[in-house]
């Protein structure tokens, strides 16, 4: 593939801790990707709409507030409703191990908890985006 991978990096919900999201955004850029950064306080609707307009390959979200079980699946569902289920959705943040199977079930392809090297996230996106 000789086009850059396009990734929407978003902070859903009200949580303002964006250190992780920003570090990941930079790492993805340095891996040659085009990162559409949305800033804080995005609703699932805004994130899904952004992903569609930007023709993103991937939506990467970060939540540290514990609202992940509510907000992550909502984004997946909205993308499905809009016929955009070929967009890869991944999430990160403070996410208890117990919640991960449910989130995967709901269609979040990968969950990255604290301590995950950015290279793991990068490789995961590279290997799992659905469009070549």
């Amino acid at each position: 593939m000789d086009r850059p991978i396009r990734v929407v990096v978003a902070k859903p919900g009200l949580d303002g801790h964006d250190r992780g999201a920003k570090v990941v955004a930079r790492a993805l850029r340095d891996a040659g990707m085009e990162v559409i950064y949305t800033g804080l306080r995005q609703t699932p609707e805004q994130i899904a709409e952004t992903a569609i307009q930007e023709d993103a390959d991937c939506v990467a979200m970060s939540i540290l507030s514990g609202a992940h079980n509510h907000l992550f699946p909502k984004v997946v569902n909205l993308l499905r409703e809009k016929g955009a289920d070929d967009i890869l959705v991944v999430g990160g943040g403070v996410i208890p191990e117990d919640d991960i199977p449910g989130l995967i079930e709901a269609g979040i392809a990968g969950i990255f908890t604290p301590g995950t090297p950015t290279s793991v996230t990068i490789d995961f996106i590279k290997n799992n985006i659905k469009r070549k």
Binding site: G13, L14, D15, R41, T43, S65, G66, A67, H70
Partner: peptide, 22 residues
Amino acid sequence: DLPTQIGYDSDHALSEGEVGKV
């Protein structure tokens, strides 16, 4: 919780999923 820190009541649309969390 975050809605309280950002001045939204618990029944505000943006509070969804955040009430009582942090």
